[in-house]
């Protein structure tokens, strides 16, 4: 493991590949980075994992082929989301996102959108099942307040309607 220490005897910190990213971006585009003042209360798990339906939420820009492509070149971002049926095969999906390297994902989608691994865990009974749909959007959105007020609320409402018990959210 790549670790650093401040020499003060505290626990080592894992080195980042891109240290100082938040400050760097926020300095050039003030207010564009999410910065919450407080932690939300920790929601306890109400039943065993083996009975929980999982929903996956991703900024990967993965979407079903034939659906409206995300607007990857809009200067302030795209605040819409796509439903991706959890029963999809990887070859039924495509990526519309410019802000991360997609060479590996185009060879094996599971590196950013682990459809096959999640399905295996559901089949094995590690989790109770998968929500009918997963949810995706693109990670380039320059207005975090709008993101929270619209996109996050829209996805939260959709997830609630589907009866998911737990959510795995991943950036790309």
């Amino acid at each position: 493991m790549t670790e650093t220490s401040d020499g003060g005897g505290g626990p080592p910190r894992v080195a980042q590949l891109r240290p100082g990213l938040w400050d760097t971006v926020n300095e050039r585009y003030p207010g564009s980075m999410i910065d919450k003042a407080d932690f939300v209360p920790l929601a306890p798990l109400r039943k065993p994992l083996s009975e929980c339906r999982l929903v996956f939420i991703s900024t990967s820009g993965v979407q079903p082929k034939g659906s409206m492509p995300f607007d990857t070149v809009h200067p302030v971002g795209d605040y819409s989301f796509r439903r991706v049926p959890s029963a999809s095969r990887p070859d039924e999906l495509e990526i519309h996102q410019l802000k991360y390297p997609t060479a590996s994902a185009n060879r094996d989608l599971n590196v950013i959108f682990p459809l096959d691994r999640l399905r295996e865990l559901a089949d094995e009974g590690v989790i109770g099942g998968l929500a009918e749909n997963f949810y995706t959007f693109i990670g380039y959105n320059m207005d975090p307040e709008r993101l929270e007020r619209t996109l996050a609320e829209d996805i939260a409402a959709a997830v609630s309607e589907e009866g998911a018990d737990i959510a795995l959210a991943a950036p790309a």
Binding site: A105, N110, P114, A170, P171, A172
Partner: peptide, 13 residues
């Protein structure tokens, strides 16, 4: 995960 962007669940295969 201290990994490259686009690889939050690891590497291909």
């Amino acid at each position: 995960l201290p990994w490259m962007m686009g690889h939050h669940f690891g590497v291909p295969f």
